[in-house]
Design a protein around this nucleic acid. Sequence first.
DNA 1: AAAAGTCCGTGGTATTTACCACGGATAGAG
DNA 2: CTCTATCCGTGGTAAATACCACGGACTTTT
Lengths: 222, 222
Amino acid sequence: MLSLRESQRAVLQSARLFTAIGETDLDSLLACLGARLVQAERDSFLLRAGDSVHSLGLVLSGALHVSKENTEGERVLIAALSPGDCFAEALCCAGIAESPVSVVAAADSAVLLLDFQRLLHNCPRTCAFHTKLIENMLGMLAQKNLSLQGRMEVLGHKTLRRRILHYLQPLSAHPGSNVYIPFNREELAEYLCVDRSALSHELGRMKQDGLLDYHKNCFRLL
Amino acid sequence: MLSLRESQRAVLQSARLFTAIGETDLDSLLACLGARLVQAERDSFLLRAGDSVHSLGLVLSGALHVSKENTEGERVLIAALSPGDCFAEALCCAGIAESPVSVVAAADSAVLLLDFQRLLHNCPRTCAFHTKLIENMLGMLAQKNLSLQGRMEVLGHKTLRRRILHYLQPLSAHPGSNVYIPFNREELAEYLCVDRSALSHELGRMKQDGLLDYHKNCFRLL
DNA sequence: AAAAGTCCGTGGTATTTACCACGGATAGAG
DNA sequence: CTCTATCCGTGGTAAATACCACGGACTTTT
């Protein structure tokens, strides 16, 4: 039996993966899925590119970064994960044993690991929830697909300035509102696939041009 | 009852969406899914960004391009689809009514349209195949997720030369083998998100440097 | 066969970005 | 407090790309 904190339970309840699964059912389900709780210190790896994977990960607290190194040794930041988000679910559903990406804790984090096999294949006891789980997984994958497309659109812009703007705009509720991004400069550069100092240069010019204002990782579009 | 050509039936049989569904079952399944056959002439739209979508598309013959216009009016080519491939499946599973992308016929094509609602929700008669369908859809979405990540990796490269190489390498069976790409120069530029003439320039330099050889849309890595 | 249209390579130039090096600010460790 | 490490802005330069314009090759149309 897993011992989870109240806040971690709340994350599970509202996680996309467990939509429409009751609180009481969740316990038996977690047991059936072979759920394991893992604590990850900041900067520690939950998965390394090339590792064999057998579990899906669900973020309970903290923050994770999904990244990949290209052949030139540069890192590409693929996504930032918050509590409730999952990783390796595509590998699970595509039946890929070897991970193409790395997952690192960007802060001290807690992660729930769920067994691939038990997720996808019916077991007698979880049968009732199984269908619901698959349905949720379908929704998650579809959602991630669309967000990857959104990411591609950002990378599709030819100038650094437009990449920055199109990264920030969807995060900004309205012009003038504060946006706290989950990256420092170096990470944002890896996310936008540009040189760090070029990013700093361009941010400076944009501030000068009155397009935006920022301090540390808090931005404001004007 | 749909009247499909033999070759179109073969495509359906080997399509990822219908994996492990027998030939005899396929007919009744297609009827239950409200399948409609659509012929699309080259350059005609099967879907426009902003349109409301209610059907998943499955390519029977020809070739389709999935693209999106960014706010500057530049087109970003997201994917090239071949017979057996699907589009709008993520929209279907995420319950998005308005398409963020456009789908255009790159050649005269035949496409099968399947109703979203009937795909996702059980109907009494298709119950037996329904589970299998969902399972296949899960695999397709996962696969597409991974291919989008691969695409991002290409866009992640800072130099045009490396983008070109990393686009071609996975397509090349071995060094020296012919690779026929589904794009002309302008389309390849839109796929790699670079300027067309800059692409031509760089291809010329790469040929001069002995990195590759090409003629029209046939490439050879050396 | 001529005309029109499309595709693609090329030259030249202006912009943009990458790259390197440095130093100030800040936070954390001893 | 001091030392150290990290983060980030800055300047300067080399390199890469975008952008524009043009013309030749090839296709399709009439």
